[in-house]
Design a protein around this nucleic acid. Structure first.
Lengths: 132, 132
DNA sequence: CATGAAGCATTTGACATCTAACTATTAGAT
DNA sequence: ATCTAATAGTTAGATGTCAAATGCTTCATG
C-alpha cells in the first residue's frame, strides 16, 4: 500500500501547487488534455486523463461556467461535443504549466534518469499485472 | 502522472478483489489497522491508514452498523474511543486477508524482490521530495 | 481550583469520482 | 427504408475523501 500512499501524498502536494497558481489538479489535467488535442471529443479527453466520461462532464460544466473553455456540437456528427479553450483558458494553462514544471523538478530532485526509467518500467509492469 | 494512473488502476483492481471476497478496499484497510493494534484509538488508526479522522469516523459508523466492530470509551481517558473487532469482523478480516494475499501475488508477478526494493526506495524518495 | 489551552472524535458541507440509467444521434443489416 | 445496434454525452444517486467548525474531556498554570 505504499504505492497508494505515495500517489496520494504526491497528488495532494501537486494539487496544492496548482491551487497556489490559481487552479486545481483536475482543472490542470483537463486543460492539458484539451491542449494536447484541440477539438478532441469528450470520450477521447476522458481516456487521456484516465477518468470516466461522467466525471469529465462534471469538470467541463464547471470550467465552461468559469469561461475557461467552450463546447460545441460537431456539425459532422451531432452526438459529439468539440471542446476548445478560450483565451482565459489558455492564460490559466500557461500559469499552471509553469507551476507543474516547477513541481516536477521538485518531485524528481535527487533521482537520476536511470532510476526514474526503471521506476516507470515497474509501474508499467504493475498496470499489466492488474490488467490495466 | 503515470504514478497517479497506476495507483488508481491498482486500487480499482484491488477493490474489485475485495468486493468479490465480500468487502471493499476501505473496509479492508480499516480491519487491518484495527487488527494490527487492537484497542488503538481512532487517531492512531487513521494515521496508520493514511486518511483523516473524519473519514475514518465515516467508515467506522458504517462498519459498526454492520456489526463488524465496536467502539467504547476508554475509561482512563473518556475522549478516546477504543475500537475492537467483533466475531463477524474477525471472520471478514480472514476472508479478505486471503483475497489480499492472492492479489498481492498477482500484482508482483514477474517482479523480483530487488526490483521491488528499488521501486519502494524511489517511492520513499518521492514522498520525501514532496515533504510527506 | 478555575480557567484557558490542547486533544479526540463527530458533524457539516464540499468535491471528485464511479456506475447505471437515460437521451439523442448515427450506422448497419436485411 | 426501417428497425436495431452502437456511440456520445448527460443526469441521478452513491461512495470516499477532505477541511473547518463543534462538543466533550483532560491537562496545565496561575
Amino acid at each position: 500500500m505504499n504505492l497508494a500512499r505515495t500517489a496520494k501524498l504526491v497528488a495532494q502536494a501537486f494539487d496544492s501547487a496548482m491551487v497556489e497558481a490559481g487552479g486545481t489538479l483536475p482543472v490542470w489535467v483537463t486543460l492539458l488534455s484539451v491542449k494536447s488535442k484541440e477539438l478532441a471529443n469528450q470520450r477521447e479527453l476522458a481516456g487521456m486523463i484516465g477518468i470516466q466520461g461522467a466525471t469529465l462532464t462534471h469538470h467541463l460544466n464547471a470550467m465552461e461556467a468559469q469561461g475557461l473553455l467552450t463546447r460545441r456540437r460537431d456539425p459532422q456528427n451531432r452526438r459529439v461535443h468539440q471542446v476548445a479553450l478560450t483565451e482565459a483558458g489558455e492564460a490559466l494553462f500557461e500559469k499552471l504549466r509553469l507551476a507543474a514544471v516547477a513541481f516536477d523538478k521538485r518531485l524528481r530532485a535527487g533521482l537520476p534518469d536511470e532510476r526514474l526509467a526503471e521506476f516507470a518500467e515497474v509501474l508499467a509492469a504493475l498496470r499489466a499485472n492488474v490488467g490495466g
